[in-house]
Design a protein around this nucleic acid. Structure first.
Lengths: 126, 126, 126, 126
DNA sequence: GTGGTCTAGACCACA
DNA sequence: GTGGTCTAGACCACA
């Protein structure tokens, strides 16, 4: 697992960790029940405060991405169960931005053309 | 001009004011060179501190939406000049969310269908 | 005399009037002892407050560009007597900006080349 | 870092702080990613209000000179990336003042001689 | 009257 | 501890 954090970004560090882990889960880089680095080791690796990692893991657990076994560590949830929820969220976001564009007199056809040209950059699941 | 602020929202008050004004400018509700409510009067109307309104107006000026004349008041810029920039920003956001959806195995055709069903809610410019 | 003021500029209106008059004096558009528009008429022409024009004229008098004859009006001074002072001020400004450029590792030769290419846009004195 | 503010100057305090910091960044006195004094400590040092320092730091961040990390502090950006922009600005200013001098019948050769005699006072980067 | 600057002091999220 | 937001209130220049 390779998580990057960037101090210059405005998002709080714990959010950066969360989205890093979420992304790798969704991409299949982290498998179901795979063990995540411990709070302490990740804190050392990223040179940040363990409390920050702790907060990120707590949020990830609350959001259903990981589960913690006390005294053992943290493990990835089965992402397949989360996909429908994530898709729903993504579509809401998509609608919102599409509406915004339409409100600026960009036509639906323009947006469709744009869609067609998009490269997903979606790597094959390992 | 009808600006609403909501203390319960996480976004700072000054940002809420900014987006309220921006929206009305883009919708043509506020015309070029039209005078906005003074810092003080808007503060009274919204029951917030004048400094907060001041910060919002300063940001709006910096972003090119309004211009302030010391001792006179604040006035709307000609929004037509800002439209291309806003469109560009909106399209970037659109691409981002579209990519996100595609990354979750939602097909381009699904997104296009969704686009087709969207109602813009875009009022005619007066 | 054609003075323009721009509400969108950050400089105060009275300063804009001053520099407009100064410029026309230095360019020879206004001649020595020529009468300037009255405070009231200029205020009407520019659609601004007479107090603002009054302040501009007071400053111009204080700086030696015009003189007022009470009950008669305001008249242009002989600009030739002011030129040495203006030249000194301009050279100070020139030195300041040149130093700034040199401090950013721009070479003296670069600045000289730049000087050579400048078009003055200096109209012939009438 | 040695920042001075002068209450008697007309420029607002926050602008004085900005230009002080900008200058030291451009001179290489402050290095990339070096930590700046905290908002509070600089306020104490200069005997001014923290809000004023806060405003200065916000402007410096917006202008690309520093970046702030909430809960951590403020740090210097890599100035090398800003140099081209600063050079461009400086040359525009140089042109402006040169034109002004030429408009007062000062010859290009006079300006070149003047350039030649200038001492930069530019300290070596450490 | 208007906007712009500044002070004094509070409270919050983040680390 | 740090920066970010907000309030309450003062004073100034400008028009």
């Amino acid at each position: 697992m390779f998580i990057n954090v960037n101090l210059k970004e405005k998002r709080p560090l714990y959010e950066q960790i969360c989205s890093g882990v979420e992304e790798q889960l969704l991409l299949g880089i982290i498998r179901a029940d795979e063990e995540l680095p411990s709070v302490r080791s990740l804190a050392v690796e990223l040179s940040i405060n363990p409390n920050t990692v702790q907060k990120a893991y707590a949020l990830l657990e609350q959001r259903g991405f990981i589960y913690s076994v006390s005294g053992r560590g943290s493990f990835a949830c089965d992402i397949e169960k989360l996909l429908p929820l994530k898709r729903e969220e993504a579509l809401k976001e998509f609608d919102r931005t599409a509406k915004q564009a339409l409100g600026l007199d960009i036509s639906k056809n323009d947006l469709k053309d744009r869609l067609e040209e998009l490269q997903t950059g979606h790597p094959e699941r390992l």
